[in-house]
Simulated scan of single mutants.
Amino acid sequence: MSPQRPLALVTGASRGIGAAVAAALAPTHDLLLGGRDAAALADVAARLGDRALPWPVDLTDPEALAGATERIDELDVLVHSAGVGMLGTVAELDVATWRRQFEVNVVAVAELTRLLLPALRASRGSVVCVNSGAGLAARPGWGSYAASKFALKAFADALRGEEPALRVCSVHPGRVDTDMQRAVVAHEGGTYDGSRYLRPESVAATVLAAVTASRDAHLTDLVVRPSES
């Protein structure tokens, strides 16, 4: 990694929005590509060049996470893109589903951020939480997922107030053409048409805008929706 280039860590970087964010940052940043699938991360790193390194770790394993972060002394950008979306009504979802959803979407985000706060403070860095439209409004059948995303927004708001030297942004995309969206449509019993949804690259451009804004500008909450055209 080059000392002349800022360093970014992107979780969920093996596919979808996370991989698109990594590609958007690659021209200007050195990259750590976070995720659990080491082979998929290696494929993404190969496409992005020698400025990108796989960073395979289970974000829900506190000991592994502590070990993986201990040598990161300065960090310019932390993008939380990893997440899970398990849908169902309150009557359908069991306690294990609720716990898993919060563990990945909220608790892991909080712990990774906590461990990296010294590195982020050292560079007056940026934290971006890739949230969801469900983090602003809950619909029937989305209660557990929406609750975790509401909590993620609350986390970002609290962090912004507690760490004034950092820039903290919540990005709320509408439906995005990803594997997760395919699973959602299948759950809903619909026919999948990716052209109806945002491209991951469009969400990545929104993240890039938050990260590269001039220092006098702090983009705190960004909502991006699919175009109707």
Rank of each mutant, 00 (worst) to 15 (best):
L115G: 05
A186S: 02
F150A: 04
V176A: 12
I72G: 01
G12E: 07
A45W: 15
P140D: 05
A66N: 07
V104G: 04
T178C: 14
R99Y: 11
S144P: 05
H187L: 07
A96P: 02
R139E: 14
D76I: 02
R114Q: 13
F155A: 08
V168F: 11
S2C: 05
T212P: 06
P3M: 01
P140A: 12
Q181F: 03
D50P: 07
A210C: 15
R215E: 10
A23D: 15
A22E: 08
S126L: 02
G67V: 10
L219N: 07
T178S: 14
V128M: 09
A134G: 15
W55R: 04
G88S: 00
Y192N: 11
L219S: 10
E70I: 00
P140C: 04
T89E: 04
S227V: 05
R100G: 11
G67I: 06
Q4H: 04
V90E: 00
R139V: 06
R121A: 08
T11I: 10
N131S: 15
A82Q: 02
A165L: 15
R99S: 15
L120C: 03
L120E: 00
P173D: 07
T11Y: 03
A45D: 13
V184Q: 10
A137Y: 04
G161V: 03
F155G: 01
A138W: 07
A110C: 08
A110H: 08
V104I: 14
S229C: 10
A210T: 12
L159Y: 07
E70L: 00
E201S: 15
A183H: 02
Y145R: 07
R167S: 00
L78H: 00
V106M: 03
A154E: 04
I72R: 00
R225F: 02
A38P: 08
A146Q: 05
D177I: 09
S126V: 12
S214Y: 01
G141H: 10
V185M: 06
N131D: 11
A158Q: 03
F102M: 12
S126W: 06
Q181G: 07
A13F: 08
T60G: 08
L112T: 08
H187S: 06
A122R: 09
N105P: 02
A154S: 14
R36Q: 15
L87E: 02
D179H: 12
V79C: 01
G85Q: 06
G143Q: 05
P6R: 02
L112M: 12
V10L: 03
E74S: 03
Q181W: 05
P226F: 07
D94E: 08
N105E: 01
V185A: 13
V127W: 03
I17V: 15
A24I: 14
P6F: 03
A8G: 08
T28C: 09
R15T: 13
G67S: 06
L219E: 11
V90D: 00
V109L: 11
E63M: 13
R199M: 13
I17R: 13
